[in-house]
Design a protein around this nucleic acid. Structure first.
Length: 572
RNA sequence: GGGCCUGUAGCUCAAUUGGUUAGAGCAGAGCGCUCAUAACGCUUUGGUUGCGGGUUCAAGUCCUGCCGGGCCUACCA
């Protein structure tokens, strides 16, 4: 047994996430967490909402609520949806927690102490009408290069030229439209990542087993141009963690807050502290996961995220931890994902294009989504959601292959032997062959899960389900029952136990279906199978069960057509 | 512009890291079965591995030049 710390990239507070967000971090993290627990490991699985920054302030203003209240409400919404998808977080925290305030300020203090913070005075655009400094991309104007009149202050979307806000002709606030802008001097703190470049480089080089997607992005940032650049970690905002040097005031930084991407990864640690508090544990309990001087040396730490998050997790956050010169646990493995597209384009939060977490659960139970999304996870390249593929995958894999197997076995047994595991007969030749095949296949499945090769694991799991149908076909208990009922009894006993085995090993993908099967079979223990032969003899003759209701209903064409139309554009 | 990834059957993906005849699932065709959610099983059609060069005893895999797709490029988070 080992101790495994798992974190999912923390979703931004600003609204409900779509399926692309879900499959890129939280869902695969949950799959792995459930699998590790099922294998008997001690797991701490953490996630949280990322609550600071300009978009949160603007979303709150739009909703006519104080930002703290807005975040609290959206946190509850996101927590509820996470529960709906059966995301098994040990704690779902908030980056605005007191624990994160304290830790973020602590890290800033340590970094300053060790010379990794620079104070830089720079010029920023201030909007009088909005009463705030504007991030570059919240300034709009005419592009000096191509004349496009909705160019943003960081880049022109029309000609893709990189811009500085001061380059824009007739700049205006993207928030209010006001042209009453002023360039003001303001002082900010920079994390001197460049001073830690060699340490980071050597550390990344040592991670030879990481996905190429992860290391190539890190390497690019380390070696592009002049190498790793320092990064501003403060902002002129009201909503955020006040800039402090540990417990002390930070002269000259009054009224400023840390930038979300400084405090958001630190929430991974703070979240463990929140977890300990919620569980009534003490400091040492969460520190044993995070401090190598307090027991975290034997922890394996795995992070899950979309590719857009990689630079922060491979560089900025490790730089924060390394620069503290304190014994914090660094990540051991980063599993990163490409994007899931929606029917030929991108999922779009702003345009309401695609399926969002709340809508998905209104349509179908979580297991349907979990299976399709995970078995089509964008691991090696971007992948695409279409309603045809979704319908095809779900109907074939879940309804026909798995669901129908359960149905044919339990119903056959009920009609011939009654609702209990039949008595009589010895293991047949077909049964022995099945056990041998499952031995190999389950070993392959386990190897893929250990390696977090999700699509391959799903493919193998499906093959394991298929093996059950093949077994029934060759054993043909409906025929043998007429001449040799003991033989049929033995094969059906094996098949009923096979359903239990499926429930156990499929649980990381299909937690609800798994629970439903275990209940129908009146089984409580769900130990991971060691010896397959023993696992398939778990339920003894005479063990009673009930025939479960349809495990997975098929998606009819009419529904598919209806949904395709409903989610094509503007969300209502 | 620069960098990275990618292109394999109609579709979605594999191919033990250079090693026999490139494999699965879906879709299509045929046969079988009748326990089951018109489900299941077996067989089968289908490939000049984007295109052209090169290295090698051997290339889907390595090098190179084109062509196409995607992502990142540091103030969205």
């Amino acid at each position: 047994m080992s101790r495994i710390l798992i974190t999912s990239a923390i979703p931004y507070i600003n609204g409900i996430k779509h399926l692309g967000n879900l499959v890129g971090s939280q869902l695969p993290a949950d799959l792995f967490a459930r699998y590790c627990r099922a294998r008997g490991h001690e797991v701490l699985f953490l996630c949280a909402t990322d609550e600071h920054g300009t978009p949160a302030e603007l979303a709150a203003a739009k909703a006519g609520m104080p930002v703290a209240e807005y975040c609290a409400q959206m946190h509850r919404t996101q927590a509820k949806l996470a529960a709906g998808f059966r995301l098994s977080f040990d704690h779902f925290g908030r980056s605005s927690s007191p624990q994160n305030h304290r830790l973020t300020q602590h890290f800033a203090g340590k970094l300053a102490e060790n010379g990794f913070i620079a104070e830089v005075t720079e010029k920023q655009v201030y909007s009088h009408a909005d009463g705030r400094f504007l991030p570059d991309r919240y300034i709009e104007g005419t592009c000096p290069n191509c004349g496009y009149d909705k160019a943003r202050g960081d880049q022109c979307e029309n000609c893709t030229k990189q811009l500085d806000p001061t380059d824009l002709i007739e700049p205006r606030s993207a928030i209010s439209g006001s042209t009453d802008l002023e360039i003001r001097e303001t002082k900010h703190l920079y994390l001197r990542q460049s001073a830690l470049k060699d340490d980071l480089d050597a550390w990344i080089d040592s991670k030879t087993d990481w996905p190429v997607l992860t290391t190539s992005i890190a390497k690019k940032w380390l070696h592009d141009g002049d190498g790793l650049k320092d990064r501003g970690i403060t902002r002129d905002l009201d909503w955020g963690i006040p800039v402090r040097k540990g417990e002390e005031e930070w002269p000259g930084m009054e009224g400023k807050v840390f930038y979300v991407w400084f405090d958001a990864p630190i929430e991974y640690i703070a979240c463990a502290a929140e977890w300990a508090q919620a569980q009534g544990l003490d400091e040492a309990d969460w520190q044993s996961w995070w401090r190598t001087d307090a027991g975290a040396d034997d922890v394996r730490y795995v992070q899950f995220m979309g590719k857009d998050n990689v630079p922060f997790h491979t560089l900025s956050f490790p730089a924060t931890l390394m620069g503290s010169r304190e014994p914090w646990k660094l990540v051991d493995y980063i599993k990163s994902f490409n994007y899931l597209n929606y029917d030929g384009g991108q999922f779009s939060t702003s345009q309401g294009r695609g399926v969002f977490m709340d809508q998905a659960l209104e349509i179908l139970p979580a297991d349907y989504w979990r299976w399709w999304l995970l078995s089509n996870a964008p691991e090696t390249s971007d992948s695409e959601f279409t309603w045809e593929k979704f319908q095809g995958g779900v109907n074939k894999d879940l309804a026909d292959v798995l669901g129908n197997f359960v149905s044919r076995v339990t119903k056959f047994c009920r009609s011939k032997f009654g609702e209990e595991v039949p008595v009589g007969g010895d293991l047949t030749e077909e049964g022995a062959k099945l056990i041998a095949e499952l031995d190999t296949r389950i070993a392959a499945y386990v190897a893929h899960m250990d390696a977090i090769d999700i699509r391959k694991a799903a493919t193998e799991l499906r093959a394991i389900w298929v093996a059950g149908n093949e077994f029934l076909q060759t054993a043909a208990p409906w025929t043998s029952f007429k001449t040799d009922p003991d033989r049929a009894a033995s094969d059906i006993r094996l098949a009923l136990n096979l359903i239990r085995l499926y429930a156990v090993i499929s649980a990381p993908f299909l937690p609800d279906a798994s629970a439903k099967l275990m209940e129908a079979l009146r089984c409580e223990t769900a130990d991971w199978p060691g010896d397959v032969g023993e696992a398939l003899a778990f339920m003894k003759p005479g063990h009673s069960f009930v025939v479960p209701n349809t495990l997975f209903a098929k998606i009819p064409d009419e529904d598919r057509e209806d949904w395709a139309e409903r989610f094509a554009g503007q969300r209502t």
